[in-house]
Design a protein around this nucleic acid. Structure first.
Lengths: 355, 355
DNA sequence: CTGAAAGCGCTTACAG
DNA sequence: CTGAAAGCGCTTACAG
């Protein structure tokens, strides 16, 4: 193991050290390295300063800069979980826009999942100019608001935020429902998220309504945590308790069995696929399954999932742009962005079984 | 949309505001809120201060604190990608230990994947006390070292770090190879990572050696990027070009077809499963497949993957502990931790086909 | 074109 | 038991 660089001769070099080496004042160093020297410092002097800074390995102390300027050019992105690649997309999109505006982006996965984030500020510890929160439950708003920082909400109930970016999930659910109705499905079950956040409430309403309007019926809703296991358990309940699975050994309880399972995300849908297989049902011949998100698992499983592509990267980018707008004191318009979603029909859905 | 809290009457309250409200000096406020008042400030006064701070919604300015103390109590965790839940585990473990020691942990997913991280410090922008880097390629070391901060490497070549935590991947690969040899497999192919970092080099060596010593042979190595698609492509090449797939329509090129595919991670293995299926091969009857990591996708696919469970959370925790040790000036011993790994036999491996 | 100086909001000896 | 003061390393008017 090499030695740590901490105990170098003079410790970490400061602007004064650079100034001494370049034979100028510390103020000049600041001007040059801050890129504000044009017309104020001789080009030759500026070059000397840069040279000295390089030689010493100088890096400005961010704490000092941020204390002085009162801003950190840093935003915090709060997400519920890292176990879903969806948030990788959100981060990627946001960080790209942030970088382009010379902003830093600190990622904070809330340890409580979609539940209230326990003081993300304490954990992030960075000096922050604003917060972007993705897919958080309403209860976390108070905590997030506590910092008094500008707040942009993503894929969430945004009534208390400074700006919002959402997917058109209602339209998405309509697309899913119409896709299934078009395939002849009339009895549909909803494998829903156990977490009751805004986006899932909207999904449930849009699904119920579209199915009803299309002449079908939502025969059952079972909730599961957003994981493969959660989906497996919830879908198993749906399939056995409605009598959809012939081998289940449990009598139907009067409900007609569903021919399609609409799942609130791809992880749940992957679990539903497993449930069907274990109960001896073929997908999509006996039962169709749909997901939402289009994360990697959607194409990892067999059959590949018919799902809704939600533009995660676009949402992250739009969220960062919205935050920048709020920070610039942008007028109150343009504060709510809605991103379209696309249905991706794949092999997990097919014509409803006849008979 | 509600108004942002930015333009409150007096702006964000400082320690002086609290002092004024409580009728004490700013120094006393600092003492009380910093928990260093015992025996220095009257309990009654302390209570008044806390009350005033609460009433004003005071939060200490972290930039000022960090400038004054010279430390930030914050570490940076650099990971290559968020598209693998493995790193969610690493983060979770590290953040737990960090919190217990009142440390913050900033997550930085390197935009270049396992390639050199382009100045994570600029992006993180936080004042940092140390860096933990997981599964990064050697080339990124220079960048990471540039900050002069204590560095802990995870699952990487650690020769230039202050401390290291690694999995016993060599032993793991041996377990995988022996498992397959025990099932009668003699011709094994390696679906390897296209990224050539330390951990993958170790895996390749251990696999080749164990297979050879067990009387088998490594008939082919194909590399793919660490994703389902990468695995699908690499495994398709292995299966068609060795003549393993009868329907492939390509003549064997003199190489005996493998009966087992050892993949460098679960994503690659999930892709291999798809490749086999598309080529009309049954898993595990015609070909066995193994993964590494035991992330969610390992149990999402069918058949579920025989894989190596790498304790990601444990590695994150050990990494943070190691960093804390380095920061405390701990003696040079105990700087290299090796974590054991476990083989999880599941349905994707079975007896080698006879004949 | 360059420098001296103020001040951001804290923590921490040091007086009293 | 409490306060006045120094100083962390920057940025930014302000002089010259």
């Amino acid at each position: 193991m090499a030695k740590s660089g901490r105990d170098e001769p003079e410790g970490r070099p400061t602007g004064h050290d650079v100034a001494r080496a370049a034979g100028v004042s510390q103020a000049t160093v600041s001007l040059v390295l801050g890129g504000k020297w044009q017309g104020r410092v001789a080009p030759r002097t500026a070059e000397n300063v840069r040279e000295a800074a390089r030689a010493l390995g100088y890096r400005p102390n961010l704490a000092a800069r941020s204390l002085r300027t009162g801003r950190a050019r840093t935003a915090l992105l709060v997400v519920p979980a890292l176990t879903n690649d969806f948030f990788a997309g959100v981060y990627t999109g946001a960080v790209e826009v942030a970088s382009a505006h010379d902003f830093g982006l600190v990622l904070y996965p809330s340890p409580e999942g979609t539940a209230p984030a326990r003081d993300p500020f304490a954990s992030a510890r960075a000096a922050l100019d604003g917060v972007i929160a993705s897919s958080m439950a309403v209860e976390s708003l108070a905590e997030l608001r506590a910092g008094g920082l500008p707040l942009v909400m993503l894929d969430s109930d945004a009534s208390d935020a400074d700006a919002a970016v959402n997917f058109d999930v209602a339209d998405g659910m309509r697309q899913v429902a119409r896709h299934l109705l078009g395939l002849g499905h009339r009895r549909i079950a909803h494998v829903a998220s156990a977490v009751d956040s805004w986006t899932f409430t909207v999904r449930a309403h849009a699904l119920a309504r579209t199915v009803r309007e299309g002449g079908g019926s939502l025969v059952r809703t079972e909730r599961g945590e957003l994981s493969v296991t959660g989906g497996l358990e919830a879908a198993t309940r749906v399939l056995t308790e409605t009598g959809a699975a012939p081998d289940a050994g449990r009598p139907p309880r009067g409900t007609a069995p569903p021919t399609a399972l609409v799942c609130d995300d791809d992880l749940l849908a992957a679990g539903a696929l497993k449930a069907a297989r274990r109960l001896g049902l073929r997908v999509p011949e006996d039962v169709s399954v749909t997901g939402i998100d289009d994360v990697a698992v959607a194409r990892a499983v067999e059959p590949e999932l018919t799902t809704l592509r939600l533009p995660a990267t676009g949402m992250g980018a739009a969220g960062m742009r919205a935050l920048l707008g709020v920070l610039d004191g942008e007028k109150e318009g343009d504060r709510e962005t809605v991103l379209p979603v696309t249905l991706l029909p794949r092999a997990s859905t097919g014509p409803a079984p006849t008979g």
